[in-house]
Design a protein around this nucleic acid. Structure first.
Length: 498
DNA sequence: GTAGGGTTAG
């Protein structure tokens, strides 16, 4: 009974049976019981119960059981208690391949990529080997942080070990290459794959979409039918995202309409998010607002936040204020929202509005998300925040930045003043400028730079990067929070539409 | 007779 329910969509029911069994006390749990109970805890998000089961595992003498303990690691981690999972992992008297893989994937899924890498390094010196599961988790981490060099290292491991026939591995490779900005390599992996499933196609479609190649995403979409595969909700997310970034409004509207009627895929909140973005980005702000109102969740702050972002692009104070009021009303105001509206006010020369937003941030104690950028240079991932002087070599970075600013200005770059006005600090450079400067200082002439950042690129940095690519003859690939920008010869692949 | 790990998502 516990097993059946732990595998069902009512995992809590499994815990009820476990409780009843323990309460009755006529039979004691064994190693299998715990494996299923832990699975149920993970699925049901029952962290306390997981700790309770841990106690019973100790009392019943199963602390030396590899499988039970591996389950325990996952169950803790799946409940957000990853430190507890790590403790169990460290104290296990023996760890096999599956245990190591579980620990790595837990860190990877929690976004703790440095930790995942550390575990992997320890794993290599422990003689358990590695398999397809190991590389999939590692590739997923590379994709998340945009660590192309490490990703390439792993793809060598894939080739050396003959893991390429595994469909998960191929999919993870495609995802890694697209998220690290190397679309050609992603296409090449796709071509080489012997078997492809829906996720394979989705990884390509999503990857092309975030790069702004909506038309190519559509081509893959059409082609997947010829091999008898049906699109799912992720497929449409990729498509809509691609249409949105390329400004293919009519195509996007058509896919949104037919996804339900023709392909029987019910749009969810994320699809509505894409549509708000599609209309908003294209300047159809009223249409975007209609989508929010017609969506099954008009009370979702992300939809209003997307609209607010569109108001920034198209300088609409009026609708921006509507979006803001809705966010306030939903009690979901973040500092980023206030900053956005403040910038809209600033562009409309509304000083009163700007100061109103500043006060709001202070009075509400809203935390700002610090913007950061990272770049992989000489085998290390370096992270920069705005006006970063925390590194021992920041002198070098600043010097290089001055040089680059000068070089960019010679080919036409004009630094924007509003940025300084807003930050109140003339020497306050955005993190991507620092990352680019650091990359220029530490890589040979002509080498491609790849920068990943957690927020959107600002207009000034976008213009700066265009001129740098021209002045110094460098290809610069920037992955921002939602899409890629390929800068080359003074032009960006987004065609200034972002 | 029953047990552990992996990819894509506004």
């Amino acid at each position: 009974m516990i097993r059946a329910f732990s595998l069902s969509s009512f995992p809590l029911e499994a815990l009820h049976y476990y409780n009843a069994m323990m309460f009755q006390g006529q039979c004691s749990p064994d190693n299998h019981t715990f494996s299923f109970v832990l699975k149920a805890c993970e699925k049901a998000k029952a962290g306390e119960k997981c700790g309770e089961a841990h106690g019973s595992i100790i009392r019943n003498g199963y602390v030396n059981d590899v499988i039970v303990c591996t389950n325990l690691v996952r169950s803790y981690a799946g409940n957000g208690l990853i430190q507890m999972g790590k403790k169990v992992f460290d104290e296990m008297c023996q760890r096999d391949l599956v245990s190591w893989n579980a620990m790595i994937s837990c860190y990877s899924q929690a976004g703790l990529h440095d930790e995942a890498l550390k575990v992997y390094n320890l794993m290599r010196s422990s003689n358990v080997g590695l398999d397809e599961f190991t590389v999939v988790s590692l590739l997923s981490s590379c994709a998340d942080v945009g660590a192309l060099n490490f990703g390439v290292e792993i793809s060598k491991i894939v080739d050396d070990n003959g893991f390429m026939n595994n469909v998960f591995v191929g999919n993870a490779l495609i995802d890694m290459y697209t998220k690290c900005g190397n679309l050609d390599e992603a296409r090449w992996v796709f071509e080489r794959m012997r078997r492809r499933d829906v996720s394979t196609w989705n990884s390509m479609i999503v990857g092309l979409g975030v790069h702004g190649f909506g038309d190519e995403a559509v081509a893959y979409f059409r082609q997947m039918f010829t091999v008898g595969l049906r699109p799912n909700s992720v497929t449409f997310l990729g498509l809509l995202c691609g249409c949105s970034h390329q400004g293919l409004v009519e195509e996007g509207v058509e896919y949104f309409r037919t996804m339900r009627s023709k392909y029987y895929v019910e749009p969810n909140i994320k699809h509505y998010g894409c549509m708000v973005d599609l209309f908003g980005r294209a300047g159809k702000l009223e249409k975007a607002m209609e989508i929010i109102k017609s969506s099954p969740s008009a009370d979702d702050p992300i939809l209003w936040r997307t609209l607010l972002g569109a108001c920034k692009i198209h300088k609409s104070v009026e609708i921006g204020e509507v979006a803001m009021r809705n966010l306030e009303h939903l009690n979901a105001l973040s500092a980023g929202d206030c900053v956005l509206l403040a910038r809209i006010y600033a562009e409309a020369q509304d000083k009163h509005g700007v100061s109103k937003m500043r006060k709001l941030i202070k009075s509400q104690g809203i935390k700002t998300t610090p913007g950061w950028s990272w770049i992989e240079v000489e085998g290390n991932v370096r992270r920069f925040v705005v006006a970063d002087s925390s590194h021992t070599d920041s002198e070098e970075t600043n010097k290089k930045l001055k040089e680059i600013l000068h070089g960019a200005s010679l080919v036409g770059y004009v630094e924007e003043e509003s940025r300084e006005e807003w930050s109140g600090n003339p020497g306050c450079y955005h993190s991507e400028k620092l990352a680019i400067a650091f990359g220029m200082a530490r890589t040979p002439h002509g080498a491609t730079l790849r920068v990943v950042k957690n927020l959107r690129v600002c207009r000034d940095c976008h213009s700066f990067t265009k001129f740098v690519s021209k002045a110094f003859n460098r290809e610069i690939i920037v992955r921002d929070r939602v899409r890629f920008h390929h800068f080359k010869d003074g032009i960006c692949s987004c065609k200034d539409y972002w």
